[in-house]
Design a protein around this nucleic acid. Sequence first.
DNA 1: TTATAGATTGCCT
DNA 2: GGCAATCTATAAT
Length: 213
Amino acid sequence: MPQPEFDAAKLKLIPREFYNRDPRRVARALLGKVLVRRQGESLLAGRIVEVEAYLGAGDAAAHSAAGRTPRNSVLFGPPGYVYVYFIYGNHYCFNISCLPDGEAGGVLLRALEPLAGIDEMMKNRGMAGPATNLQALRMISSGPGRLAEALGITRERDNGKDVTSPASDLVVMEDGFRPKKVAITARIGITKSADELLRYVIAGNGFVSGKRA
DNA sequence: TTATAGATTGCCT
DNA sequence: GGCAATCTATAAT
């Protein structure tokens, strides 16, 4: 197995201002960044390879479409905070709020390329390790429910956390990696506003969710 | 108070 | 390819 290109020493925290703009721009800019989870003594990290933008206004598919509720209030709050929701009675999905306080909007993280703490992530997923091929690695965090489980993300634990704080155990960082090519497609798994091109992926990356490797 | 759909995944045929 | 699992929010009685 080739080791992924990754050097934890290069990681720099991304500031709140990064998220204080249109979710489409944040989504595009998040591709190639690194999601880092501190789990006890371990560091779990994955490169963001697939995201979707959910707009506050005029986006029927967004949880914020029907106005502010206790559940979605993070989306209406200041940028750079964690919004986790539970879906289909089985899975958590991880989002980051965008736009200034009072304006709704967010980005759903849909797939990560595992970089560090791979054994721990497999344990969190209930997988037997070690991973010996690409197919096994893909099962760790290619899909919104999978990546949340791999990093131990739950609503109870993580909703409302600040991804820009050095004190947080769940942050987004950057290591200088730049995607070579980005593809934009329709969002996956939704029925409302299904035609909007708001899904961003690193073109050709093998960890993008879906059946095709 | 009851019904139904949902930003998914994994197992079954 | 089909569908069950199983919690939450919202719509319909």
